[in-house]
Write a protein that binds this DNA or RNA. Sequence first.
DNA 1: CTGAAAGCGCTTACAG
DNA 2: CTGAAAGCGCTTACAG
Lengths: 331, 331
Amino acid sequence: MTIREIAELAGTSRGTVDRVINGRGNVSPELEKKIREIIQRENYQPNQLAQALINSRKHLRIGVVIHSVGNPFFDDVIKGIDERTKKLKSYGLEVQVEHLKGYSEWEQIQAIDRLLEQEIDGLIITPINVVPVQKRLETIAIPIVALNTDIHINKLAFVGCDYHNNGMICGDIAKLILHQGGTIAAVVGNFDMSGHKQRVEGLEESVGQHPNIVVTAKLENQDDDQISYHLVKDYLKTHSPHLLYFGAAGIAGGVQAVLESGKNIPIITVDETDCVKKNLEQGIVWATVTQQPYLQGDISVKILYDYLANKKKPKDPYCYTKGQIKLKHSK
Amino acid sequence: MTIREIAELAGTSRGTVDRVINGRGNVSPELEKKIREIIQRENYQPNQLAQALINSRKHLRIGVVIHSVGNPFFDDVIKGIDERTKKLKSYGLEVQVEHLKGYSEWEQIQAIDRLLEQEIDGLIITPINVVPVQKRLETIAIPIVALNTDIHINKLAFVGCDYHNNGMICGDIAKLILHQGGTIAAVVGNFDMSGHKQRVEGLEESVGQHPNIVVTAKLENQDDDQISYHLVKDYLKTHSPHLLYFGAAGIAGGVQAVLESGKNIPIITVDETDCVKKNLEQGIVWATVTQQPYLQGDISVKILYDYLANKKKPKDPYCYTKGQIKLKHSK
DNA sequence: CTGAAAGCGCTTACAG
DNA sequence: CTGAAAGCGCTTACAG
């Protein structure tokens, strides 16, 4: 079935059928009804390829603001963004990325403004969760996708990790290792960060299903290796938990402290940075739970493009990637 | 850059440029050279959308032979095939699936013949690894993708699980649970099946890295729940392994026997059938390792289509899906 | 409100 | 060996 055949069946022109299909108005009610009936009856589906070919004429620009500099976690996110961009290039998509270093809200707002000046049609951002950024994003007329970190604004979608579930899975791993019971020390960056808090809550909920496992310490390392090192070193002087959980950054420092303590404590971590990979390989980190960073990049571009090009909204605006367990021989 | 612009730069027609690009011959050497230089210089890339639109005129047919009836593992494989088919429908792809029950080589050959009569352009098959099937496949002129099970023929690709690695990962899980040492009983269908054998070999290689873990029993249940039940029941009368590994089918029967034995033995399994899901949920199965069945279906169609439509061969003809660990709260 | 025409970037006969 | 023309299925001005 093509638009031409529909037009012939309705005794009208392709242009008119097109107007009906795409709701552009300017069609008499009777004719519209007739055309709709034929479309229904013949189960007509527009050819996506032909549509895409036309669509590619109007170039779409997506802007990305991401604090990826010096943060290896985002390497895979970027890779996902890049590959999806390449695939959609012939569809007329251009993507402009602003790589930021650190968490300066001021710089983030400037980056947003730079992109807006270039007349982007949509924005993907790993937002810093503070009021000025939120305010700035609220005033933007184009659709926004929050990537990896959520923010309370009117957005097309959030693409990222379900931190609570991620913590639950870490708890499941802890239960495998400590099936005879034991204590856990959990280290994250900062409990004010919702992701960090949720991970530990998930961990506690999950191990709470075992009668003899307790999270006996919750420590903050500010995502900093130096702080993490001293924190864990001091803690292990007076404590010997049966398992150590690192639910955010500062893993290298923390692991170093464990090794120097001489205590043989199982370590489980999150994500799969080079540091984690190396220690997993050597059997120092026993397990890690990743969050499909590549997919996060890939999906966020895909969702935004689909909306801009075809007005297609994601089924669920909260698009969670899966927590995946990686052990020594995982690929 | 479009083909029209190239033609203008070369002072020739689009048709001639097209002949050069697609190596259809009938172009004078000098003109060809000139055109190639311009293409190079301008870094011309043909518009894939336009190509696909043309391509969709010649309808491609892919045939699938899969022994999916009564084997819930294949539900997700089928889902992957179906969704990829839907995506490629506007590209002119039609897929015809022959669902088979059981492992009759004779029926499989008949199914192949039925598809060939319908003039399929490519074949996807979960082959039964016997000589008659192999012989039949050898004589087929169209490209073949071996799905989930490999077979020694000249094929476009194998898409499936890396069984050895899958077993290694199971071993990694065993090491988490038995970090203080212990014995493992491994149950598979039949050690003559290469996948089953490789899984157990992987398991042994992995736990071999721990000084005090040994696989003390390797049992065959013929992939049958009844046999599995009696086998495990008898075994547990005289043995108490610290962990039970089910590396193939017959899990429901085996689990039943463990429960009736009253012994609290950790169980790890493969794949994620309803039986496994239920027992994972209830904490009876401690962990399972899946092999991305959905992706196996998805990829096999994609690879075959890419070859038929664009003569694009997969980078690696052995396309392994990843072994993924699932615990109670995995999604 | 409606239709004829031109166009997207490519490929495919066909005439010379 | 080469080029002009028609076509894929859709959309977009434009003239009436």
